[in-house]
Simulated scan of single mutants.
Amino acid sequence: MPDRSESLERWRRVLTVSWALVGVLILAAASVFALVRISPALVPFGLALVIVFLLRTPVAALERRRLKRGAAVAVCYLAILAALAVLGLFIVPPLVDQVRQFLGAFPGYYDRVLDLWGQVQRQYSAVAWPSWLDDALVGIRDGLAEQLASWSANLAKTLFSVGGGAVSFLLNVFLALVVAFWLLKDMEVIKREFVALAGPKRRDEASIVIGKVSTVLSGYLRGQAIVSATTAVIVTIGFTVLGVPYALVLGLLAGALNIVPWFGPLVAEVISAIAAAFVSPWLALWAVLVVIGAQQITDMFITPRVMSEQVDLHPVLVIFSLLTGAALAGIVGMVLAIPVAAIAKGLFVYYFEKWTDSSLATENGALFRSAVPCETDDRSAMTDEER
């Protein structure tokens, strides 16, 4: 009888966990559906969270210098406004001019690509191609021509509607700055309230989970911003020295595309090579080498220092997360794949070690290597009540 009762109890627990998982999946699906429906209204809040995670470290540093939290946030905002003023005076005017020139030269690129294809076709017309290869090349040519025409039409539509999009973007940025200010100012209070929602028995666990998630997200965003900015600066300087057309535009594009791992730098190399190829084939090669060199410099010297301690993922997990993110949500999924995977790995390791009372992550591990312990911003910052 005892064995039978233990077996029934075990099956009861299994069924309870199974139904709980089904409920969680249903709740997750409903949440995703709701988020998709209201996603336009959430844009300023998403931007606000990015601002919060980027500024929480400098705000905490100013707080340690005995500034009140509101004053620390105001100082960071003044620094941002000063940086935007400098960009508006010295970076934006030449950037706008180069973008205008680049868009004006786009139809010429299209015509020259077709002329180049015609020259290659005439030069090798005497070669006895297999019929299937000739058909394939003709199909590729027609497909490229159709795709380029489609891109040109879409580009024209985008430029025609860019005014309304710019107004909407500026409005979202303004709302994001307002929301981020209040979130940063009351961050400690909001964190205590979220921890309190877990109940007295779960407060320590909730505090640890919130700390892990916020540490990974803030570390990833800060690191990605530094890596992208460094890539943009190196590429812009290199292209300017080499004489690559539209160096500033291509440099900023390389920095922005660096957010998408692997695929982004490859696209930047192709675009840069096309822009430089119409000056000289050797310049196209040098342009590709500059982008690759900038990527290697950031990967070897910048990324390990600013991201490894916060987002410590094995290459196998990185590849799996990128492919999964791309399959689920395309480019957006690839951008979000690494921080989501890092958070999931950190929570899995925490709960596994808690439930099994054993160590899984080690400093010399592979899939479950532990990050270097560091003091988080939340521990070092003091609230006004604590002072």
Rank of each mutant, 00 (worst) to 15 (best):
I234M: 10
V216F: 06
I237A: 12
I210M: 05
S228F: 02
L266E: 13
V290D: 01
L283F: 03
Y220K: 04
V290I: 13
V260N: 03
A268T: 07
T230K: 04
E193T: 09
A225K: 05
A254L: 01
L221E: 02
E205V: 12
V167N: 10
A276T: 03
A180H: 12
G264F: 15
S214P: 02
L253A: 14
W182A: 13
G219C: 07
A206L: 09
I259S: 04
E269K: 01
P265I: 02
G264I: 10
A176K: 10
I237P: 01
P200G: 09
L248I: 11
V290K: 00
V209D: 00
R192Y: 09
S214G: 05
I190F: 05
K201L: 12
P281T: 11
T240H: 05
L250V: 02
A196F: 10
G163K: 09
V249N: 11
V260T: 08
I274R: 04
R192F: 11
I271M: 04
V173F: 13
G238P: 01
A206T: 08
L221K: 00
G211D: 09
V241G: 00
D186A: 10
I292R: 01
T215H: 01
G165N: 14
R203I: 07
L171D: 12
W182Y: 15
S228C: 14
A206C: 10
A256H: 04
A277V: 15
D186Q: 09
Y246Q: 03
T231G: 05
A275F: 07
T231E: 11
L250H: 07
